[in-house]
Design a protein around this nucleic acid. Structure first.
Length: 452
RNA sequence: GGCGGCAUGGCCAAGUGGUAAGGCAGAGGUCUGCAACACCUUUAUCCCCAGUUCGAAUCUGGGUGCCGCCUCCA
């Protein structure tokens, strides 16, 4: 396979990836609304597309990666009011938390993190254009997008308008021209952050920000636009409608969407309240273990979260690390060049096929076996792991604080072992296990403590 | 009600027309005072029924079960 294939939500099939301009790739990823901590679902999205980005970069594309922060929104206003702080204070805090969590997961920083509130001017321009073109209309200080003016409406989500209209869950505002028309600009209510506009004080609707930021930072037509599967409708559908109506150009060539993280067979989401924050999980597991767990299944499939799964991942990842630690020869032995090359090809082919990380990880374990049996060639493992964003930490064991007491116990056991007083040495081991929940392992590199 | 996705060994998970990758757990072995770790070896015919085909987990039709979207959501 020569080309990278990407599953495009727009066509519902895998397509050969061919960016608009030769070697450069413009990549826009929908970021978080910063009113709360990120959970495992967010991690999946950002890790998934981090892998996509890394592989494109590995394939010599010059990637410009932009990811927004939504820092104006109903939930932000509500939360800020509850906490009696400003929206700005609230969003600053969670933006920092975002960086903190993603750094631990080894997610590369975007080239730019535009924030919605810094692009109000751009949004007003877009909305004005839409009004001029009579695609948008004012309604009591709000501005709505008239979906009937965009014939392609529904092309991303494959929705049929009539079906949507009959849906019982769509709240019908009688005055809208079409019940499905969405708000571009919201009239200000008292006590809310607001900006001046040709239509009076107000704030932007949700969808317009991404159009404004993507167009401003990456141009009217971008290569890849990505986000969670839940954003397909209405968010991305609306982005397409407003952007393409405005510029007259295709908004994004490829649309990529990651599947959900479920927990107990139910979508993990803030509204359902069944989420586990990254902060929580990252106190129990190293970031790399969670990363490994997430990319162990394909980014488009559903992932049913379970702690057992993470334990399993930890165990598996540890084997790779062990090889990295014990095999020191980076070079591939001369008589096994072909065998190594075959594995490398398999890995790259898997990645080229819509970023098949589970398959690629499978190859990593075959490679692991080959390296161990030939006691050499560990450089390739490090390289391929790097494409997946693994091995950024050399140690994945939890840090165990070496207290004086622990130190004494270990010395006592060592001494007993040397004197072949195994009764005492076993007592120390049992003691550590029951009192500290720590396991002792005698490795070639010496004694190691692990959490039981 | 409309639209879409999924169903592979005890668990997780690739494969999507040519006779089932990989991981975890389990078993056997090497190592070890014993363990653990690590390493080596080993373990399935793919939800059900009918059909297409020389050949299907992979295609078609019909079931059953689970999930998601249609409202803010990665």
């Amino acid at each position: 396979m020569e080309h990278i294939k990407i599953y495009n939500t727009l066509s519902k099939q895998k397509e050969i990836f061919s960016p608009i301009n030769e070697n450069s790739v413009s990549f826009y990823l929908c970021g978080v609304t910063v009113y709360d901590d990120c959970h495992i679902g967010h991690a999946r999205a950002y890790v998934s597309f981090d892998v996509v980005r890394r592989f494109l970069e590995y394939s010599n594309y010059d990637v410009t990666f932009v990811q927004n922060f939504t820092d104006v929104d109903d939930k932000i206003i509500k939360r800020a009011n509850e906490l009696k702080i400003s929206s700005d204070e609230l969003t600053q805090k969670y933006i920092q938390h975002y960086y903190r969590d993603m750094d631990k997961l080894g997610v590369k920083r975007a080239h730019k993190y535009p924030r919605a509130t810094k692009y109000i001017g751009e949004m007003i321009k877009l909305i004005s254009t839409l009004i001029q073109k009579e695609i948008a209309y004012e309604l009591h200080g709000d501005v709505c997008f008239s979906i009937d003016k965009f014939p392609d409406y529904g092309k991303l989500s494959k929705k049929v308008l009539e079906d949507l209209e009959s849906g019982t869950r769509v709240e019908v505002d009688q005055e809208k021209r079409n019940p499905l028309d969405f708000v571009l600009w919201k009239k200000a209510k008292p006590e809310e952050p607001s900006w001046d506009s040709p239509w009076g004080k107000g704030r932007p609707g949700w969808h317009i920000e991404c159009s404004a930021m993507a167009i401003k930072e990456l141009g009217p037509s971008i290569d890849i636009h990505a986000g969670g599967i839940d954003l397909i409708f209405p968010h991305h559908e609306n982005e397409i409608a407003q952007s393409e109506s405005c510029t007259g150009k295709p908004f994004s060539k490829y649309w990529m969407h990651n599947g959900f993280v479920n927990i107990k067979n139910q979508k993990m989401s803030k509204s359902l309240g069944n989420f586990i924050t990254l902060q929580e999980i990252l106190t129990q597991y190293p970031g790399e273990v969670l990363r490994f767990y997430l990319i162990k299944s394909h980014y488009r499939s559903m992932l049913n979260f379970s702690p057992d799964g993470i334990d399993e991942s930890k165990q598996a990842l540890q084997r790779l690390h062990q090889t990295l630690k014990t095999v020191t020869n980076l070079d591939i032995p001369k008589d096994k060049v072909e065998e190594f090359a075959r594995l490398e090809t398999r890995f790259i082919e898997a990645m080229k096929d819509d970023f098949n990380t589970p398959e690629a990880i499978g190859v990593l374990f075959d490679l692991n076996k080959l390296i161990n049996s030939s006691k050499a060639g560990v450089g390739l493992l490090r390289k391929l792991g790097g494409i997946l964003g693994l091995f950024y930490d050399d140690v994945i064991d939890d840090d165990i604080e070496m207290t004086e007491e622990l130190q004494l116990l270990l010395e006592k056991r060592n001494k007993a072992k040397q004197e072949k007083d195994f009764k005492t040495s076993d007592e120390v081991r049992d003691f550590l296990l029951t009192e500290y929940q720590l396991k002792i392992e005698d490795t070639r590199e010496g004694v190691r403590l692990r959490r039981a």
